[in-house]
Amino acid sequence: MKQDYFSANNIKYIDYKDIEILKKFLNPNGKIMNHKRTGVTAKNQRQLAGAIKNARFLGLLPFVAK
């Protein structure tokens, strides 16, 4: 992924409930991928990290995947 996924799909607000999107940015262990791997802009990467953390708190995404 070279281009920013969120601006390519015209997503302005990254929602913690969109777990299908958020899952794309997790590695097999459930960690958030580096911005170098995701290709997301710095601003969106921060929003993305926040959204993933919110989703984790509500049990929608794992903190650690086995």
Partner: peptide, 14 residues
Amino acid sequence: RFLILKTVRENTIA
């Protein structure tokens, strides 16, 4: 559990 967030009026589910 619950989570209170500030958000925007527009539909955010994409």
